[in-house]
């Protein structure tokens, strides 16, 4: 894990460019895929929250998968869904407490954020840098004991 995905809702303008970028990046055979990132207003005025998979440590989706299709990718740090192994039982969709495992109705697949295999397209396209893919810098400041 060399990079960290940072979401800063304070900078989000709700332009939904990330949604488009995600959808086009995950296109299958020329058909747009289901977006994995959702900019929602959360009921607040002038405030948008890009809701995206939090890649939890003790993830409910991984626990709920009875065929071990969901595994953590040690390179990117994301929880990857292996489409070949997935049996589409919808357990992860129902179990995720943040609603970030979603169904792609068009392609009849269950999808979730995989950080684009280590280079998230949404972070590239975000015009206000509310989404960032930052390298983790080695800790320089000494921590007081």
């Amino acid at each position: 894990m060399k990079n960290r995905f940072i979401v800063n809702p304070d900078l989000c303008t709700g332009c939904r460019t990330c949604e488009l970028a995600c959808s086009f990046t995950h296109a299958i055979e020329g058909l747009r895929g289901q977006t994995r990132i959702y900019p929602l207003d959360g009921g607040f005025k002038d405030l948008w929250i890009p809701v995206v998979c939090l890649q939890c440590d003790d993830a409910a989706c991984v626990k709920s998968c009875l065929v071990d299709a969901l595994r953590r990718n040690s390179e990117t740090g994301a929880i990857d869904l292996n489409q070949e192994v997935c049996v589409k039982c919808m357990a992860c969709v129902a179990a995720c407490p943040f609603g970030c495992s979603v169904v792609d109705q068009q392609h009849k697949l269950v999808v979730k954020c995989d950080l684009c295999g280590g280079d998230p397209a949404c972070a590239h396209f975000c015009p206000t840098k509310a989404l960032k893919w930052n390298p983790i810098e080695p800790q320089t400041r000494k921590v007081a004991v």
């Binding site: 959702y38 929602l40 009921g43 929250i49 129902a94 995720c96 609603g99």
Partner: peptide
């Protein structure tokens, strides 16, 4: 976890994060 659908889960997360940001 199973009592709310995925869409409502996302709305809930947005509401919580929105409150913290505000």
């Amino acid at each position: 976890y199973f009592q709310i659908c995925d869409e409502c889960h996302r709305k809930q997360l947005a509401a919580t994060m929105g409150e913290i940001t505000s």
